[in-house]
Amino acid sequence: MTKNILCATDGTDHSEAAVIVAAELAQKYGAELTICTVNVAHGGSRGPLITHWTEAEVAKILDGAAAVAAAHGVEGVKRVDLISREAPAGIVSYAEQNGIDHIVMGTGDKRGISRLVLGSVAAEVSGRAHCSVTVAR
C-alpha cells in the first residue's frame, strides 16, 4: 500500500506533470507527499562544494511545486533539497532512508541519439529504486 510518495522536481514543465500525478496519487491513497529537488554538487575534495542552484532557486522550485500540489488538493507537502553528485543516486538514497514506497518523476521526450547521449534520470531511478516508480509525461 502506498503511504509515502516522493516526487522529484527541477521546476520544468516535465516535472510539473509529475507533481500533478504525485498529488493525484497522494489523494487517492491518502499518502504523505514529499517534493524534492536534487541540487547536483561538484568539487569539495580540495575546494568548496559547488551546487547547481542557489538556496533561493531551490526555494522557488520547491514553493512552485508545493503550490501545484496544493492546487490539486494536497496541502502540507514536505519539501526537501537533496545535495548529491548524481541526481539518481540522491533520489534513490533518500527514498530508501526515509520509507518512501513510491517515486514519481517527469521526463522529457528524449529519443534516439539524444536519449543515448543525455541519458535519463528517470530511467536510472527506475532501474535502481527499491520501490515503484511512476514516470509522468
Rank of each mutant, 00 (worst) to 15 (best):
Y29A: 13
T37D: 06
I20M: 13
H72L: 05
N98D: 09
A66R: 07
G43K: 08
V19K: 10
V77G: 01
L25G: 06
A67S: 08
K60R: 15
A18W: 07
E86N: 10
E24Y: 00
I20G: 11
A65N: 03
R79H: 03
E24S: 09
S84C: 07
S84T: 06
A71S: 14
Y94P: 04
H72E: 08
H52M: 15
H52C: 11
G76W: 02
Q27V: 04
T51S: 13
P88E: 14
S45K: 10
E57M: 09
H52R: 15
P48F: 06
I35W: 03
A23F: 04
K78Q: 10
A26F: 02
Y94Q: 08
R85K: 14
G99R: 04
E24K: 13
I35T: 07
G64Q: 13
V58D: 11
A41G: 00
N39R: 12
A70Y: 04
H42F: 12
L62S: 06
E96K: 10
E86W: 00
A70W: 03
Y94S: 10
A26C: 05
A65G: 03
V68W: 09
V21W: 06
V38Y: 01
I20H: 12
E55H: 12
V77D: 04
C36T: 12
V74D: 06
I61A: 01
E32R: 12
V68Y: 06
I83F: 01
I35Q: 09
V77A: 05
R85I: 11
I50T: 15
S45T: 10
A66L: 04
S45R: 09
A59W: 00
H42G: 11
V21Q: 15
V77F: 01
V58K: 11
H52Q: 15
A31H: 11
Q27T: 11
K28E: 11
E32Y: 02
I61E: 04
E32A: 12
P48A: 15
Y94M: 05
R46V: 13
A22H: 05
E96H: 01
V80Y: 02
N98A: 06
R79A: 11
K60S: 14
T37A: 08
Q27A: 09
L82Q: 07
A41N: 03
A65D: 02
A87I: 11
T34N: 12
N39S: 10
T37C: 05
E75V: 03
Q97I: 00
G73T: 06
A22P: 05
C36D: 07
I83A: 06
G30P: 07
A67L: 05
H72P: 05
K28W: 02
V40Y: 04
R46P: 10
A65T: 03
P88G: 08
R79Y: 01
V21D: 14
Q27R: 15
I50S: 13
C36P: 02
Q97D: 13
T51P: 02
V77I: 02
A71V: 06
V68S: 11
H42M: 14
V58E: 11
A26V: 04
E24I: 02
L49A: 08
G43E: 08
A23C: 06
A23M: 04
